[in-house]
């Protein structure tokens, strides 16, 4: 368990804090400190709304280590309303109800429950918009 590594990413994981390029206005998530459009330094925090839609998705039945307790679970590429795309799990939805273009909203959930000896990792997942 990478304790410091997870701690370092809390702001983006808990509440979608990304960045805004002060030069060209591009909104950036995940944060990368450099504008992907104009290459200018971009460190101004920008909190994303958490609204978006499903770009594509798949359901995982054979999870990697550390995710067994959640299987089966659906993962998706989410296009945020503000533009950027991210990868996240969907939650509170049956996999056969998911479709490309489905409106979704961000919630903060357990990403990894950890075994008894490790910290719990919390972060963004997405569920159907308006509670589904």
């Amino acid at each position: 368990m990478n304790v410091a590594g997870n701690w370092r990413l809390q702001q983006q994981r808990y509440r979608l804090v990304g960045e805004e390029c002060e030069k060209c206005g591009t909104l950036i998530f995940p944060p990368r400190d450099l504008c992907p459009e104009c290459e200018a330094p971009a460190k101004m925090p920008y909190v994303f709304s958490g609204q978006g839609e499903v770009y594509s998705y798949s359901t995982i039945y054979s999870p990697p280590r550390g995710f067994e307790e959640f299987a089966p679970y659906t993962v998706a590429l989410i296009r945020l309303k503000e533009g950027p795309m991210l990868t996240a799990q969907l939650t509170d939805v049956e996999s056969d109800k998911v479709y490309i273009g489905m409106p979704v909203e961000m919630v903060t959930r357990k990403i990894q429950g950890g075994d008894e000896g490790n910290p719990i990792v919390y972060g963004y997942k997405f569920r159907p918009a308006h509670l589904g």
């Binding site: 995940p30 798949s58 995982i60 999870p63 993962v75 590429l77 990868t87 990894q112 972060g123």
Partner: peptide, 19 residues
């Protein structure tokens, strides 16, 4: 930003295929 979300390598390809 990918693996930490529980995404597998197969799933990434599956999402491309579906799209």
């Amino acid at each position: 930003y990918e693996a930490a979300q529980g995404v597998t390598f197969v799933a990434l390809n599956a999402m491309l295929m579906r799209r």
